[in-house]
Write a protein that binds this DNA or RNA. Structure first.
Lengths: 150, 150
DNA sequence: GTCAGGCTTCAGGTGGAGTTCAAGTTGTGA
DNA sequence: TCACAACTTGAACTCCACCTGAAGCCTGAC
């Protein structure tokens, strides 16, 4: 419609790899799993939308947070692959991820604070820190995850 | 020396599994890797120190934060396996983990904020959020990781 | 037109983190 | 004392997330 640069300036897989830092093999793999999509040239080469770069970066970020490709795929599948954005869907997805992210943050903070407190008391509690948590107190609480678990 | 309960009330692998939520197969695997240790009964069955429960929980927590068993093993190897605590060693280890944990937290917060901002602007930026980040702005910055990367 | 270099598919390999299996041994409550 | 659950080992197997290599096709600069 408008003049100037094309609306879908297609990128080769190599260009996407270079710009995102994700290997081409990984991009093909992700495409196979349905996390990203591509058009093909008449010669069967992949051409990606510029928006794919954001998507790819997003996937990487989500991965680093501990989400599996499956989970990410499920989440992304609800997003505007084709047409209607459905801001409601987006908000719902976003909320559920947010919960997960918050949990993750708390989990890490807990671990960090544990470390801090151990430095603080100088007792190297990993073995037996009677001050912060005597063994017997733990034992009395019966089976199940202990301490660092949520 | 003292009377009363033994100082090292040994737990079977099944008990440790039950109390930590970690499968026995995983516990054996971790032991093989040197992350935990055990005594043996005359009949060759493993017996764990109660402190192992804390150690196991710690390992799980560290794993959830994205550390590999190798990294965890390296870290734990510096801890009082046998004798002198060396509070200095502990502090050093702890500091390096702390840095890592802080980075992790920031990484997650970044992802979370991205989600929030996308809800905020209602533009579903994963495709093309012109408001928060027009494609051209990104394209002009040349190759390399974009946006969500640190 | 030609040719390097980027792209294609497909098969097979890798590494991390376990799980499962089989066959045999130990521990314990009745 | 005996049954039976829990334990032992080693090897093989699984799953995930890719990576590597081979053999051949596309594309763009000269």
């Amino acid at each position: 419609m408008a003049h100037g640069t094309t609306l879908h300036p297609t990128l080769s897989i190599g260009q996407v790899a270079e710009r995102t830092g994700v290997a081409t093999s990984a991009l093909r793999y992700w495409e196979e799993l349905g996390l990203i999509t591509s058009d093909r040239t008449t010669g069967n080469q992949r051409r990606y939308d510029r928006a794919t770069i954001r998507r790819v970066s997003f996937i990487r970020a989500a991965q680093r947070v501990g989400l599996s490709l499956d989970e990410i795929a499920t989440a992304l599948a609800r997003l505007p692959q084709s047409r209607t954005p459905t801001a409601g869907d987006w908000a719902r997805l976003s909320r559920s991820w947010r919960r997960r992210l918050d949990e993750q943050i708390h989990s890490i903070e807990r671990l960090r604070d544990q470390l801090d407190s151990c430095i603080g008391c100088g007792c190297l509690s990993l073995r037996t820190c009677a001050l912060s948590n005597p063994d017997d107190t733990l034992a009395a609480r019966g089976p199940g995850p202990v301490l660092l678990e949520p």
